[in-house]
Design a protein around this nucleic acid. Structure first.
Lengths: 154, 154
DNA sequence: GATTACATTGGAATGGTTCTTACTTATTAA
DNA sequence: TTAATAAGTAAGAACCATTCCAATGTAATC
């Protein structure tokens, strides 16, 4: 269960975005804010099953799609066939393991400038009116490097 | 139908990657190399139906997945529910219209440095052994800006 | 508290992708 | 050139994540 602080925070987020506050939306958002596990719908359902046993899968899909529309959440694919979701409170991007699918959040000082620069260049070249971006970096996570017996020659 | 030059080029690509040369692979790769329309499996099937009428959908999926594994092709999602494919001969990224799904290739001088920098930073921070990346920028394409009556205030 | 527009449920339907089996073929070596 | 075999293809069934639908429930407004 999410802390009271998180519940208050997420309540405010919903209100700020003029989203009707339902228990389902509230608890799903609180889960996403307080976890960084990039869950699938199934994982969310299992995790929240005790608090809202009757929550339908379509509700979770609807809710997450709403959050995505409001740019609260981003969708991620790691190759396992289902969509993963990530609360997007602060700018970051993702490193995805090509072997096990593990997703980690990454950011660094100056990332925001890199992003802005990419968007500006894109606008100039393509004529698109930019609204956002996604960056992903692929590779082997540290665990899989060991598991596969790979030596980083550096 | 792809030109002879493209057919020769793609034949060499297949050989370079030690892929068994079949008519299906050859013609699909030639189609991707000579088109920049980011096709779906269905589009490829329709386009090549005259040349190989009996080509099964699973063959196209298998072939494209093989190309993806060999980093010849990248997969793209534009929100229409099916996967789009793009021959990745030269480094570039994609701008995707959030309204109509149109995908355009983008690159600019210095993009390669941006990419390398992102990968290096990611390796340092996450410990991943990096093998690649995908960048996407979202926005409204020029057509949709007009269609939706949006003025770019600049 | 009544109204109304919106959200949730539960299950059916959808559809893109993968899987399976039998068949065919590209490659290699003799 | 031919035989052997490892690999690819065809066709369609199966899978399964996601969406759709109709009925019910509920949050927000006045």
């Amino acid at each position: 269960m999410a802390s009271n602080a998180v519940m208050e925070e997420t309540l405010q987020i919903l209100k700020d975005h003029k989203l009707r506050v339902t228990p389902q939306r509230h608890i799903i958002l609180a889960y996403l804010v307080s976890h960084h596990n990039h869950p699938t719908v199934e994982i969310i359902r299992d995790a929240l099953g005790k608090e809202l046993p009757n929550m339908g899968a379509s509700t979770i899909y609807n809710t997450l799609n709403t959050f995505v529309d409001h740019h609260l959440v981003v969708e991620l694919q790691n190759g396992d066939g289902s969509t993963h979701y990530d609360y997007f409170g602060t700018p970051h991007y993702h490193a995805i393991c090509t072997n096990c699918g593990r997703i980690v959040d990454v950011t660094y000082p100056g990332f925001s400038d890199t992003e802005k620069n990419l968007e500006q260049k894109t606008a100039e070249i393509s004529g698109y009116m930019i609204s956002g971006n996604h960056m992903e970096v692929y590779g082997l996570c540290p665990e899989c490097q060991i598991k596969l017996g790979i030596k980083n020659n550096e």
